[in-house]
Design a protein around this nucleic acid. Structure first.
Length: 423
RNA sequence: GGAGAGGUGCUCGAGUGGUUGAAGAGGUACGCCUGGAAAGCGUAUAUACGGUGUGGAAUCGUAUCGAGAGUUCGAAUCUCUUCCUCUCCGCCA
């Protein structure tokens, strides 16, 4: 969330910038400002009353030590009123802070200046593109047909075992998955990311830390008995490594990568968007995360985007990078680039990666800070990106590389698959 | 799952009701000392919020000894709840 201080010191600017995200902040910001001033005066009153109480307690202690029982007992009587005041002020402060927090979590992150205005996906700006869209032979098929033809993925079997959206990968289909995971992890390692294996279930505190809770609770699977959530992305456990942590400035940027299965309930999505591998309840993804110095976080973002670009290039897929407009960006992001690859048989672009700078929005919730030479602690910037999500990559690989003889594997991937064609 | 022990600052470790934000040690930083280094000596070394205040600073108050609630004039110290760790037993990939 945004910091209270920034909001109250830059109200006009905050409201103006929120408008780019199509968020009318006029009312809520006014409420925040008012509650904050109540909070401050209450805090001041509480502090001075507590100070009075502390002094009185010390006096009483001294009096008892000196054996002046009567004076001590007399002094005790004075504390009753103070106690009540402290209780009242404390309750008021807690209540005010709760209200403030409830408001703050409803305010989205401020978009970066370079974010284009716009309301929908059509308003996103194509940053650059590359690769070649192949011409398919007569009789070329969408990936769900190819998956069946070559017995790579069994969607019906997944329905029997779990339900829709939980496919079973088989044979070369399963090996292709494993190859891609290793390919992505090895590349990330070579790019300087430390590989970590995080838990796939997280507690509520972690969900709050990265912003899935409280508003997007319905998107995660919840194990009620243990009050744990299945992760929708490795971003959640990996970023939460740095919750309540004060890093040393010289250790920045922190670069982590992780493979994980991801679980998303995605309630209410039906139709062609969810056909085949386009949208699943469980899928595999390799994530990259950086914790950065605010001064250089946009350099880090560029670095991450360039890195992801090398992946789609090595996979020989037709790709393009979109700079998301204000209306299409996530709640928590300040600037997001989406990667899309072209799915030739479906004749549509598929989102395979989203790389974002959250600036201090997540870090504020996480309390992820760093301390530099000046001894001051300040919030880090957090960034993350998919590098990459497997299902749509697989969809595009199958469709774009199909030939009458079989599906050919891109060169860079062959050392990982151990085969060069699916036939 | 059963029985027991414990959770204190960057680390170790004292502390069973009263100037304890917290002894002592270690680590780290700066200074002194030295031809240089070690040793030695000195100083500093948490976070948040609030007040006063500044060019940067500084300074005062409040809170925090796993978390939450309670007893008390006063709690790291007592009570309750909860989370976690360790040891032994059981179960298990």
């Amino acid at each position: 969330m945004l910091t209270l201080k920034y909001i109250t010191e830059n109200t006009a600017e905050v409201i103006a910038r929120l408008a780019k995200k199509n968020f009318d902040g006029t009312g809520i910001i006014a409420q925040v400002v008012e509650l904050d001033s109540i909070r401050k005066t209450t805090q001041t009153q509480l502090d001075s009353t507590s100070a009075e109480m502390n002094n009185l307690s010390k006096e009483i202690g001294m009096l008892f030590k000196q054996g002046k029982q009567n004076e001590a007992t007399a002094a005790k009587e004075k504390t009753t009123e103070l106690k009540e005041t402290i209780k009242e002020l404390g309750d008021k402060l807690a209540e005010t802070e709760q209200k403030l927090n409830d408001l703050l979590v409803q305010i989205p992150n401020l978009p970066h200046d370079s974010v284009p205005a716009g309301k929908h996906a059509e308003d996103n700006v194509i940053e650059r593109q590359g690769g070649k869209i192949p011409e398919l032979y007569d009789g070329a098929a969408p990936h769900w047909d190819l998956a069946k033809k070559y017995d790579l993925i069994d969607f019906e079997l997944g329905v029997k075992i779990s339900g829709a959206g939980f496919p079973v990968y088989k044979g070369k289909g399963a090996r292709l998955q494993r190859a891609l995971i290793n390919f992505f992890l090895d590349n990330a390692r070579d790019a300087g990311y430390l590989e970590v294996q995080p838990p796939y279930v997280v507690n509520a505190a972690s969900g709050y830390g990265t912003g899935q809770l409280p508003d997007k609770e319905g998107q995660m699977y919840h194990c009620q008995i243990d009050d744990l959530y299945l992760i929708p992305t490795a971003e959640v456990p990996v970023t939460n490594i740095y919750r309540d942590v004060i890093l040393d400035e010289k250790d920045l940027p922190v670069k982590n990568t992780a493979y994980s299965a991801c679980f998303r309930r995605e309630a209410g999505s039906y139709g062609k968007d969810v056909r085949g591998l386009n949208r699943l309840h469980q899928f595999d993804k390799v994530e990259i995360v950086q914790i950065a110095n605010p001064e250089t976080s946009y350099d880090r973002l560029t670095e991450m985007v360039n890195y992801v670009q090398t992946l789609v290039e090595k996979l020989e897929l037709p790709w393009r990078i979109l700079r998301l407009c204000g209306g299409d960006m996530s709640f928590t992001s300040a600037l997001t680039f989406d990667f899309e690859v072209y799915s030739t048989a479906q004749e549509r672009w598929l989102e395979v990666s989203s790389v974002s700078n959250f600036e201090s929005y997540q870090a504020n919730r996480l309390k992820c800070r760093f301390k530099g030479a000046d001894k001051k602690t300040q919030l880090c910037h957090t960034l993350n990106g998919s590098a990459m999500a497997l299902p749509r990559i697989v969809a595009a690989l199958l469709e774009n590389n199909q030939t009458p003889e079989g599906i050919r594997i891109p060169k860079a991937l062959i050392p990982y698959t151990g085969f060069d064609i699916i036939d």
